[in-house]
Design a protein around this nucleic acid. Structure first.
Length: 279
DNA sequence: TGCCAGGCCGAAA
DNA sequence: TTTCGGCATGGC
């Protein structure tokens, strides 16, 4: 991967291993917005940026320091996913899924944001998930200036922990509000330590995070995969169950071993975008 | 209008 | 251990 410095912008090439569209619209994150030109705007680790692809390169509005400290890791740019193609493409279905989503990357999201985002996602549809998270940030996030306007970060655990259920009511998050508050209080009180979880093996970390009220196997594995970059975690949701008869044709998600989570994301994205139905 | 959404909890079997 | 009703809300 080649990094080229421009004024207020970093160029990375070649671009074929990273697709902003597939990465930001494959259902792993809820705060990146694309415009009609394919320019995506979002916030991570307190930094805002625009990211787009043009003429074989990826462009990121960032200085070199933020690129090295935040974006390179967040976008998983150093990992070449093509190394998994032979492993993933074991049948026609998997070949189609990988072809469809080629260029998607598993984002290294902030653990706290990933946890809350996927607590909100449970039994919910994506437009509404995005709406609830947008309100969450608008109400309680910190202001930062970007591109001539004010944008807001994802609110801190302490900020949310100080709220009551009544104060969370404007989110219209339903029964999930209680889960959000429970998680915020656990993190703010130091009972839930993301660094400690990160150091654990996946199975142990899963057992620990599932002790939180409102966190079952599905939310836990989304948190492990998208929030702690544990690539062997593999969330199984309704779409994955619908897809199972297809990818499971002599194949099992666990057979993808320590990158099962990446395989899972190809399958989920392909199944959802193509309205895959069970046989 | 009714069905469904990147589910989870607690009780019953 | 598996199954199942209830849960809040709103997108489609």
């Amino acid at each position: 991967m080649e990094k080229i410095l421009h004024k207020n912008m970093i160029e990375v090439r070649p671009a074929e291993r990273f697709s902003p569209r597939h990465t930001f619209s494959c259902g792993q994150c809820f705060r990146w917005r694309g415009d009609e030109d394919g320019v995506y705007t979002g916030i991570a680790y307190g930094k805002a940026a625009k990211i787009w692809e043009d003429n074989g390169s990826i462009f990121i509005t960032s200085d070199e320091q933020d690129f090295d400290a935040v974006w390179c890791k967040y976008l998983d740019l150093d990992r070449d996913y093509s190394q998994y193609d032979a492993q993933f493409c074991k049948n026609d279905f998997m070949r189609s899924a990988v072809d469809f989503g080629r260029g998607l990357k598993i984002l290294a999201q902030e653990p706290w944001e990933a946890l809350i985002s996927f607590i909100i996602s449970q039994c919910n549809n994506i437009p509404r998930i995005e709406g609830i998270i947008e309100k969450l940030c608008a109400f309680w996030g910190d202001e930062i200036e970007f591109d001539g306007k004010t944008v807001r970060t994802f609110p801190s655990p302490a900020r949310l922990a100080a709220l009551s259920l009544d104060e969370l009511a404007p989110l219209r998050a339903g029964y999930r509000a209680d889960y959000i508050l429970t998680a915020a209080k656990a993190v703010a009180a130091g009972e839930l330590d993301f660094s400690a979880l990160s150091a654990m093996d996946t199975a142990t970390a899963r057992t620990e995070i599932m002790k939180l009220r409102g966190v079952g196997r599905k939310v836990a594995d989304c948190f492990l995969l998208f929030g702690l970059s544990k690539m062997d975690a593999f969330p199984v949701d309704t779409w994955m169950k619908k897809a199972a008869p297809f990818y499971g044709d002599g194949l099992d998600i666990t057979s993808f071993g320590d990158v099962a989570g990446i395989a899972q994301q190809y399958i989920f994205y392909y199944a959802r975008e193509n309205g895959l139905a069970a046989k």
